[in-house]
Structures are given as C-alpha cells and as structure tokens.
Design a protein around this nucleic acid. Sequence first.
DNA 1: TTGTTTCACGCCATATAGTG
DNA 2: CACTATATGGCGTGAAACAA
Length: 253
Amino acid sequence: TIPLRLFRKTGLKIPSRLEVRGEVYLAKDEFKRINTEREEEGLATFANPRNAAAGSLRQIDPKNTASRRLNIFIYGAVASGELDIASHYEMLNYLVDAGLKINPNIRKAASLKEIKRYLESWEEKRKDLPYETDGVVIKVNDFGYQRKLGQTSRNPRWAIAYKFPPEEEVTRILDIKVSVGRTGALTPVAVLRPVTVAGSTISNATLHNEDEIRRKDVKVGDWVAVHKAGDVIPEIVKVIKERRDGSQQEFTM
DNA sequence: TTGTTTCACGCCATATAGTG
DNA sequence: CACTATATGGCGTGAAACAA
C-alpha cells in the first residue's frame, strides 16, 4: 500500500528529499485469511497479527512479503527544508495529498480534557477497528514547540503514548529459577503454568531481582495476574493473596 | 539432505553506573 | 534531579548455523 509513485497530484510542492516513517500492520481479516490458507496447506498457523507482520517483513523474497498484504500508516516525515509546513497535522495532510496512507482517526485537541474524552471514546470502539491496537499517541502539533521541547536519547518530549489496559490472565507460579546472564548477573525468573495472553503463550516472566520479589511479595505456588507490557513483555502484575492456601514457599536467592 | 538449535530483531520494564 | 548508556529479561518469527 506504499505507492510506487508519489505526487501524482499537480500543484503540490515536491521536496528534493522526503523521508517518511510509519507503522506496518496486518489487518485482522488478512491475518485470518493467511491462517486459513496456511491450515489448508498444512503449515503452522501464526500466533498473532503482530508477530506475523514482523515475520512477513523479514522474508528474503519480497514476493512472500507481498502475499501477506501488509498495510501501513505513515505517522511522520522528515523533508528537506523547502516545504513550509509548520505543524504535524499539516504534514500528515500533505502526505495524504502526496499519495500516502495515514490513520483516518487523527484529531486535533485543544485541551487535556478533550484528549481525555477522545481516549475514553476508543475504549470500546477500538474493538471494531479492522486492526488490533494497543493505544493512542498524543503529540504536540506545532513544529516550533516540538523543536523547543526537543528529545531525550530515546524519546521526544513532545509525544507520548496512551495505552489501553492490556489483557490480563491468571496463572500459577510453579517455580522460581535463577538465570545466569552473559556477564554473570543472576536474575530470578518465575516459571509459570503456561497461559495464553493476547495471542502469546506466557510461560516465564522475569522477577528482576530479590528486591522486586519482596516488593511484589511473590512466593512459589502463588496465583498471579500476568499481562504483556507494551503488548510484548510478560510481566507479573500482582499476587492474588486470597488464593493462598499455606502451601506457598518463600524464595531466597 | 534433513532436522534442530541458535541468533537477531522489535517491543518495553527495570536496574545500575555515571554525567552535568 | 534528569538524564545517558548499558544490561537483562521473554515471545514469535525467519534465517542462519550447526548436527546428524
């Protein structure tokens, strides 16, 4: 869905150089289609759209990638100076005119209150979207303010992600093992009764260190709530203490 | 040649050490 | 205090490396 030729519209200013950035996704119905096909062909089915999309991009033969029918939303661009665009919103509209796809649900908000209302409006609606989403990005619109705010080493100070509450499941800690890292660091890892959360089988989760175990009051044999932080990293959210029956064992490194 | 294992990658949380 | 830089952890995936 990235056109081979941009700027078919006449009268549009064309920069000498344009770099666009976006997020590739695999729509829910395409994910289903691929898995149905793979089933018919006796191939293993994919676990979730996110990882299927990632795998599709890693194909050596672009024909394979194309057959997966990935899609993309462009969310930003860097153009050589001559463009005369002063805000993010303007830029996105320009990119649409240039022939690129952007997310149709962008909105300008004038206050935090408005932002909050918008976020709440998607809590339920997001299930009706043709793709899976885990949140909304809130950005400062004016490029001048963006420049003033600047960025840290990894994150801009003018944008932040709001994440919807992630899917949560309950399982049991079967054991706590200590893993030895490359540098010799010892890290306790919870071995869980495998549980499916948002399309992944979670069977391990790091407990980081002894302090963290004490903070969360985790014991071997505990029932715990788990989720995938950032939709990816398995994390023990909390211990369900009401379900303790005395068989739980304190862990020491 | 075939099957298995390892690796890199993207994603984020948490921690430590160090800088200014 | 606000960072930067780095390390570590887990999952799913395809490719590469390895073993049989």
